[in-house]
Write a protein that binds this DNA or RNA. Sequence first.
DNA 1: CAGAAGATCATCT
DNA 2: GATGATCTTCTGT
Length: 205
Amino acid sequence: MKTLPLQFYRRPATVVAQELLGRILLHREPSGELVSGRIVETEAYDETDPAAHCYRGITPRNRPMFGPGGRVYVYRSYGIHWCLNVTCGPDAYGAAVLLRALEPLEGIATMRRRRSVHRDRDLARGPGRLTQAMGVDHTYNEHDLRSAPLWIATPKNYKPPFFVATPRIGIRLATDWPWRFLVTPCSWVSGKKVSCPTTSNHRDE
DNA sequence: CAGAAGATCATCT
DNA sequence: GATGATCTTCTGT
């Protein structure tokens, strides 16, 4: 599997969000074990989005978002969860893609140990669940995603996603595995906050 | 310094 | 559909 190069990330978050779908997130844990999953849901943020952490400039928390593309930005959500973002664009521009769901691939037994769920498809479906399953937390902030212990690569069977709509900020991108792509509005649209059904609660089929 | 809101999730009805 | 857990950040005084 080939690791994604720097220039992949140094593009607009909307583009990176689209092209991250189908790639593999890998984590070499302190124990040496490898856990991984296919990225199946993403969400783009940048300085133009009122819902984005970087909308009002740099703060201690969001500083990684203003770093160069290709790094980790992890933040605490609702005091309980960690959420994993991939920074995008050039240095000094605030942009990132939130990783919202994985299809578990390797280290599934470890994921099950960390998350008690009945079905494996729930192991990493949702941003908070994803970090719990992968064993990722804030200590990974600003880590370069081209190298261990946390990196993203392209699988051998990768096929570029097809979209009928143009992805943009405030739009959540997802694929039901295998390969049915969805585009869902979220956060803010046309300056107004809209209801935003979370994957975890509403895609239970 | 107090208070509210939040890129969530599990659990309950 | 509603609620609580739990904590950081931001805003207002």
